[in-house]
Amino acid sequence: MTPAAAGSGSAVPVGRAVHVKVPATTANLGPGFDTLGLALSLYNELDVEVLPTHGLEIAVEGIGAEDVPTDTSNLVVRSLAHAFAWAGVELPGLRLTARDAIPHGRGMGSSGAAIVAGIMAAKGLLDGIVEIDASRALALATELEGHPDNVAPALFGSLTIAWMTPDGPQHKRLMVHRGVSPLVAVPAGTMSTALARSLQPQSVPHEDAIFNVSRSALLIAALIQSPELLLAATEDKLHQSYRAGAMPETDRLIRLLREHGLAAVVSGAGPSILVLGSDPAQRLRAADLIEEHAETPWESLLLAVDFRGATVVPHSTHAAA
């Protein structure tokens, strides 16, 4: 059924409930600015139930819960409403319970995860009324996020290449070599994505663009086939150096890690650090170096690549997901 055919008369049954699980993501991966993203095994979870009356009941638990709004400005709610508006179905009264594990403002895709959680919740609630397929979910999420590099891996898992076309955002999902071992080092401080983007120049030298094209191509090969090439493949000249002054300790630690042969880059907009180890021992070395040389508190998260992406299931069976 198309959204136009569904219309506002197709009400969602009272009591329908779904459980959503969305992975953290890390974007750019060094040279793949606004194009490459990787899903990680750290998750936000969301339960949504349709109420018999209008209005919202929102409870948020976990990391950063005290800073998350519990009204219509909540990003999950805005995303849900966006999907329902596209579907032409009136947004019912809802009870939302969110359990967040993804740090906010640290370059781990927290806003993308919130947007994807709302889209997936809408997909589950609208089951049998309006279909939200994979391409539509990506389009709706990108409309809110502004770019697809975080929402694509959050939706589909693994490594994603995302790009824009006149017909909307597109993506390609690739399987990651089993030897790739991610670590994300998370500092106490945050970084605004808007601020990070404002530090980018409007144009870059031709040779820098060529440099990043070559490294981005090499990075795909390193991630899916040849992890031993990760150090060379994660070199970048398009964005990290321009943002370094806004997060000096991040920059200093990345330089240190790379001097020790470790493929360290800024995670997303920062200030977290992503280390792509070619084996588990490399990321343990990275964690030790950060602990030894950091001047402020950092938490090293030893994560796996998430291969499943976002999921939504009826609430009564979510434990099996």
Rank of each mutant, 00 (worst) to 15 (best):
A162I: 03
E131F: 03
V130Q: 15
E131I: 05
S158I: 01
A141R: 15
H147S: 06
Q170N: 11
A154D: 13
E145H: 05
D133P: 01
A137L: 13
F156S: 01
D167E: 10
P166R: 08
A137S: 13
F156G: 00
D167G: 02
A152T: 02
S135P: 06
S135D: 15
L140Y: 12
G128P: 03
A139E: 15
A141Q: 15
L140N: 12
L138G: 09
R136C: 09
L159D: 10
A134I: 02
Q170C: 03
G146L: 02
M164K: 07
W163F: 06
L138W: 11
A152N: 14
K123Q: 15
L138P: 08
D149P: 00
G124S: 11
A141I: 13
F156M: 07
F156N: 06
P169V: 02
T165V: 03
A162T: 01
W163D: 04
I129M: 08
V130C: 08
L138I: 10
A141W: 13
G146K: 02
D149C: 01
R136K: 15
D149F: 02
W163K: 05
E145D: 09
G128V: 04
E145N: 09
G157S: 03
M164N: 08
G124C: 08
S135K: 11
A141M: 14
I129N: 11
G157D: 08
N150Q: 07
L144F: 10
L138M: 12
P153R: 05
L144G: 12
G124H: 13
R136G: 07
N150M: 00
D167C: 01
A137N: 13
A154Q: 14
A162E: 03
D149K: 01
E131H: 01
P166M: 00
T142W: 15
T142L: 11
D149W: 03
Q170V: 00
L159G: 00
G124T: 09
D167A: 05
S135Y: 06
K123M: 11
L144H: 11
L159I: 04
L125P: 03
Q170D: 05
T142K: 15
D133C: 00
G128M: 05
G124I: 12
G157R: 04
V130M: 07
E131D: 13
P169R: 14
D149A: 05
I129W: 07
D149Q: 04
G157K: 03
P153C: 02
H147Y: 04
G124W: 10
H171V: 01
I129E: 13
I161M: 08
A137T: 11
G168Q: 06
A141D: 12
R136D: 09
P148H: 04
E145K: 08
D167Q: 06
H147M: 01
H147I: 01
A152Q: 11
L125K: 15
I129H: 11
G128W: 07
D127C: 06
N150G: 00
